[in-house]
């Protein structure tokens, strides 16, 4: 809105300058051509485009006055650039107005006017350019075009990355092949390793394991020894690390009362308080003795 108001103000300023023209006096000009054009017939929303006003006269003048631009209420004015070129064949005045449309649809631009004294007959006259009718199109194709351009850029970048990776891969593959070819061993005859003499497998019975545990517990009456003996007996009945007493008592090997009592006594020795530890170890030793006595 602010910029549109600026466009109106721009037009009003031009009208004001046109109104004061008779006071300053009109220039004597031989008008050869006076035209208004647009750099596009189908401008797009939010895409700036240019209106170009061109005046050619035979006289050589330094500036052109008394040109009235049409009202550009449907457009937003972004810039105005004037250029006067004087040569042996006269003067060319070119004014480029950069605008932008915010709404789609048709826009009719009225002709621009020039007030001057016709040098051919010495009478004041007013010249008119052609009018313009533009159709502002939506933004869809533009956005699509941008997206397509982005996709194309991404695809191109991806292509280059893949090409580089392929090249690096080829180099690595070639290096590996060369390295392997160099290190290929000579053909050797397989000689089987000497077979060690077969040793008899010692399987300790549960009774012997329990005797070992009892010896350990009697020798070292401490918490770590109790914990170690507990772990050994648990392994003996097939339990794994991380099981609780409840899990171990569920096992088939723990169903007889003597084994259950042994497992419970060992659990006590591993978790009871320090003052109770000697009694707990005594109980565990007794339970181990009973187990050894009952074991085959």
């Amino acid at each position: 809105m602010v910029r549109r108001a600026a466009a109106l103000a721009f037009f009003v300023a031009f009208l004001a300058s046109a109104g004061s023209a008779p006071a300053q006096g009109l220039a004597r000009l031989t008008v050869v051509s006076f035209a208004l054009a647009s750099d596009t017939n189908v401008p797009r929303i939010e895409v700036p485009f240019r209106l170009i006003l061109t005046l050619r006269v035979r006289e050589r003048v330094s500036q052109i006055a008394n040109i009235n631009l049409p009202m550009l209420a449907q457009l937003e004015l972004l810039g105005d650039e004037r250029e006067t070129v004087t040569g042996p064949r006269g003067t060319q005045y070119r004014e480029t107005i950069t605008v932008v449309a915010h709404q789609a649809g048709g826009i009719a631009i009225a002709p621009a006017t020039l007030q001057a004294i016709d040098a051919r007959d010495g009478k004041p006259k007013e010249w008119y350019t052609n009018g313009l009718t533009l159709r502002v199109a939506g933004a869809g194709p533009h956005v699509l075009r941008d997206a397509l351009q982005l996709l194309r850029a991404i695809a191109l970048a991806l292509f280059w990355v893949l090409l580089w990776l392929f090249g690096i891969g080829c180099i690595v593959l070639a290096a590996v092949l060369i390295f392997r070819r160099r290190r290929r061993p000579a053909v050797v005859t397989y000689v089987p390793p000497p077979v060690p003499p077969r040793l008899p497998i010692v399987v300790r019975s549960r009774r012997e394991q329990a005797e070992d545990a009892l010896a350990v517990l009697r020798t070292e009456r401490s918490r770590p020894a109790a914990v170690a003996v507990r772990a050994a007996i648990w392994r003996m009945v097939g339990a794994s690390d991380g099981e609780t007493l409840g899990d171990v008592l569920q096992r088939p090997d723990s169903h007889d009362e003597i084994t259950r009592q042994l497992l419970i006594a060992l659990e006590r020795s591993a978790f009871t308080y320090d003052d109770d530890l000697p009694r707990a170890i005594d109980d565990a030793c007794s339970a181990l003795e009973r187990y050894i006595g009952a074991a085959p």
Binding site: T244, L245, G246, E267, F271, Y273, D276
Partner: peptide
């Protein structure tokens, strides 16, 4: 009991 066991915690 006057000492806790892992079974107590798990239960």
């Amino acid at each position: 009991r006057d000492f806790a066991l892992p079974d107590d915690v798990r239960a």
